[in-house]
Nucleic acid binder design. Sequence first.
DNA 1: CGGTCTATTGACTGGCGTCAAGCACCGTGG
DNA 2: CCACGGTGCTTGACGCCAGTCAATAGACCG
Lengths: 220, 220
Amino acid sequence: MRIIGELPARPAVFAAGEEIVREGTRQKESCLVTSGFAARSQSLRSGERQITAVHVPGDFVDLHSMMLKVMDHSVVALGPCKVAFVPHERIREVTEQSPHLARLFWLSTTIDGAIQRTWITCLGRRSAEQHLAHLICELYVRLEAAGIASDFTYGFPVTQAELGDVLGLSVVHVNRKLQELRSAGLVEWRDGKVTIRDFDQLARLSEFDPTYLSLRREAR
Amino acid sequence: MRIIGELPARPAVFAAGEEIVREGTRQKESCLVTSGFAARSQSLRSGERQITAVHVPGDFVDLHSMMLKVMDHSVVALGPCKVAFVPHERIREVTEQSPHLARLFWLSTTIDGAIQRTWITCLGRRSAEQHLAHLICELYVRLEAAGIASDFTYGFPVTQAELGDVLGLSVVHVNRKLQELRSAGLVEWRDGKVTIRDFDQLARLSEFDPTYLSLRREAR
DNA sequence: CGGTCTATTGACTGGCGTCAAGCACCGTGG
DNA sequence: CCACGGTGCTTGACGCCAGTCAATAGACCG
């Protein structure tokens, strides 16, 4: 979520696939995405990994690191990505002085949680095809709300392997399901550019309901 | 997480399976579990459902309802369950007056998020057996920290169907995997009572690492 | 005593993973 | 200019994990 930051921020640039914050470390700063995409990922002994969240510009990726002390996940760049680091100390000060800002940070964490719950349901109870369709819908709605996407098109520069890590699927299966959506005329996805040909159908297929994203303007 | 509440609370009792808060509604109170287990669940058109979180006594189940306005999930009782409802208004006042308490609520939400991330990884990248083993470990550690469990035993009165809704599996498969853990001598599970026979082995099997639960005492 | 709920088991099916090969595209160096 | 290795996408063959369907048995209850 977009948090208006008049905070002192240290900008940094990362190339596709680079690690922004490492699992298991203790941080003194939190970062927010200013351009491109970042993701949270957890890895297993086998070398497999699972991406547990995707962040778009404006998202405060790891407010978590401040509260959790030890990172339970890494933050990586999906495609080229710019971020800004803000010292925990400053966030702490700001939240103590302004209950309103504290509330906004808390809200951000809460919406994050709502998205994660939806992902859990996608992983547990939806088919691969539905899950993929759901993700495509979610990203469009989030990016549109952030003012970065329109006309049912957006850039999302990830490999199919990374997509597999998001969906909990193998590369091969991602490839097949993607082709099914393509040949059904629902989606185009080429060179990191996604175009939704039939949003309603895609939403119906995946039972996508954007309520959980809390994008409607309401007093908080 | 245990939030010390000197807040005005309206107590309520729910029977196994009863709905405490309904998906899609707007609430004016948040609830915390005082005894028994509650769960968050999302349901699909097909009638299937996914449980996205399990809450133990001391957990502030849906602080969410305050921030999110419209519930993105239901809260249901797993087994008999006692809860306390606290008006949002009171929580709001308290957090505005005490940055420290606001911080504790925020921390609670953050840890909640860490647990959800782990569940995502379990669903996406672990086998059914590992996932089940991981859940058994997690619940024990959380209950022990809450002072409700010891000696590797705890009560968890859920049906195998509910367990399936937690793990994203069918009843039949839950039954089979449970039997495998039993016959491997790792776990006993009868009549809603879980006994871990070999915690280390179970943790190794499922790659369980309790760090994400943030139970180590650290200044916040 | 029949009805409902839960646990259990077997037979069969199917979605998704694994393995492997073949392309297309790229940047590099000879 | 072309050989090359690397990376990512695509496709086919095959196998296994988990779902579905169905039936049985026990516990509880009205």
